[in-house]
């Protein structure tokens, strides 16, 4: 995807945001509530207090990482839309090995997050192999692997990974010492959000400032030219698949280690799909995609508060990300070089 001038990007974002707020106001009217009250409840629920900010940060962690996974893939011309499955694979890995650790929390966290990233990368490999060796479009294979992952989670929490001490379909909990602790009292936010934001910076740096990043961008922008020029296209694509899957897998690992402490069924609220929406909203620019992910997380946290305070169904607010993405795609459409 071609990088857009920053002013244009902000222009699009502003228009899209205005459209989204307009939709929200309209929805509040439909639900019979005061739009002002609704917006205030939404804003306070997203960022009005340490607790609200913690809720937004907690929700943002997985979304930022899956948005980064999608951005890397899209920029290099790989249509990985199986981030949900790779997220689940990472969560399974973390939930499987996490309870084995009790001492030395730092080593335990590194091991389980490493395992989660590896699991995410491995989960995308069948799709990479099918695409590169058999010509199966990765759009199909990655989304089908999402279904396999969801079914595997469902089976595992009732089988091999089920907590022997519980009747519920859930895995054993991680030791409290291994789990990420809140950074400050009165807020759920943990260091996990810092990990995600640091990776957003790192991803942007790699894509925009390194020789590898230039090769990946060239491959994504003009696959035929990249091959003819002599770039190792197959290797670059494989690396992209793996990096994208690893980021989503890490998101799943952090969800277990910092938020839920265990695996259950159904585990994901669609982090992999929302991450794709955030990447599209951010034009597959890592920093813009991460900002979009935080925005979506804030909308999620805010809409829960809005439902509690004003009675407007929180589900209505989930319409907003959809409207945002469609508005941005419409604004960007039919400009050469702007895909996907």
């Amino acid at each position: 995807m071609k990088a857009e001038p920053l002013t244009r990007r902000f222009g699009i974002a502003a228009v899209a945001f205005a459209a989204a707020v307009g939709v929200l106001v309209g929805l509040a009217f439909l639900a019979g509530a005061s739009p002002v009250d609704a917006l205030r409840a939404l804003a306070e629920g997203a960022a009005g207090s340490p607790a609200a900010l913690g809720e937004t940060a907690t929700r943002a962690t997985a979304l930022v990482l899956t948005a980064l996974g999608a951005s890397v893939a899209f920029r290099a011309g790989v249509l990985n839309i199986g981030l949900e499955g790779q997220f689940l694979a990472g969560a399974v890995a973390a939930a499987a090995i996490g309870p084995l650790f009790s001492a030395s929390p730092v080593a335990a966290r590194i091991a389980l997050l490493g395992a989660a990233a590896l699991a995410g990368a491995l989960w995308v490999l069948p799709a990479a192999w099918l695409e590169m060796r058999r010509g199966v479009p990765e759009v199909l294979s990655t989304i089908l692997l999402n279904l396999v992952a969801a079914a595997a989670v469902s089976g595992l929490v009732r089988g091999a990974l089920q907590d022997p001490a519980a009747d519920y379909p859930q895995s054993r909990a991680l030791e409290e010492a291994v789990r990420f602790a809140p950074l400050a009292s009165g807020s759920r936010a943990t260091a996990a959000i810092l990990v995600a934001l640091a990776l957003a910076l790192l991803t942007a740096l790699v894509l925009e400032r390194t020789p590898l990043g230039l090769k990946l961008r060239a491959t994504g922008l003009a696959p035929a030219a990249a091959r003819a020029i002599g770039l190792p296209s197959a290797r670059l694509r494989l690396l992209t698949f793996a990096a994208s899957g690893a980021l989503a897998g890490l998101a799943g690992g952090l969800e277990v280690a910092a938020v839920t402490g265990r695996l259950y069924d159904p585990f994901s609220a669609g982090a992999g799909y929302t991450g794709i929406a955030a990447a599209l909203l951010g034009g597959s620019n890592p920093l813009a995609a991460a900002a979009s992910a935080v925005l979506f997380a804030g909308l999620g946290a805010g809409s829960s508060a809005m439902q509690r305070d004003t009675g407007i169904p929180g589900a209505l607010a989930t319409i907003v990300p959809g409207v945002l993405v469609l508005a941005v795609l419409a604004a960007r459409a039919r400009r050469p070089g702007n895909e996907p």
Binding site: L214, A218, L221, A225, A226
Partner: peptide, 17 residues
């Protein structure tokens, strides 16, 4: 389609592969 990456700058194109 094959000779250049139209969206990249000239210096980026000349730096490849």
């Amino acid at each position: 389609e094959e000779g250049l990456v139209a969206a990249l700058s000239l210096s980026e194109n000349l730096a490849l592969p």
